[in-house]
């Protein structure tokens, strides 16, 4: 269950970027396939970890990045659903590129009351 540790780390990092008095609505995270994050487990972990924090009602938007493969036969790079996908040239001799991404990309926040009134 590394999802729980990831959720806890995510709270710490997100907190560092939360504008004062802002209410976090959605947090967007990009995860590469090598990280083997299971979306249901991640959702459950996020709910469990954020309970009683300022992120308790924040939605986690987990974007699972595709495999990025490099074909050793025709040297093409492409996105695939799985690591053993065949290239358009027919070759199955491909290597994954990257795939270990795990990044907090953005946060959607409701601004504090005072700024809201200025609009």
């Amino acid at each position: 269950m590394h999802e729980l540790s990831i959720a806890e780390s995510l709270i710490d990092v997100a907190r560092q970027h939360l504008p004062p008095a802002a209410q976090p609505r959605t947090i967007t995270v990009h995860a590469g396939p090598l990280r083997a994050i299971e979306p249901d487990a991640m959702e459950w972990a996020w709910r469990a970890a954020t309970e009683k924090t300022e992120f308790a009602s924040t939605k986690l938007d987990l974007v699972e990045l595709p495999w990025r493969l490099h074909c050793l036969t025709c040297r093409r790079d492409w996105d695939a659903d799985h690591m053993n996908a065949a290239c358009a040239c027919g070759s199955t001799n491909a290597r994954p590129i990257g795939g270990d991404e795990l990044q907090l990309m953005s946060m959607d926040v409701a601004e504090a009351q005072t700024t809201e009134n200025l609009k």
């Binding site: 990831i6 780390s9 995510l10 710490d12 990092v13 997100a14 970027h17 504008p19 802002a22 995270v29 795990l102 990044q103 907090l104 990309m105 953005s106 946060m107 959607d108 926040v109 409701a110 601004e111």
Partner: peptide, 14 residues
């Protein structure tokens, strides 16, 4: 309001 961040989730561990 969308706040762009782009930061390693495991930054504190790292």
């Amino acid at each position: 309001m969308k706040v762009p961040i782009v930061e390693n989730v495991l930054k504190i561990n790292d």
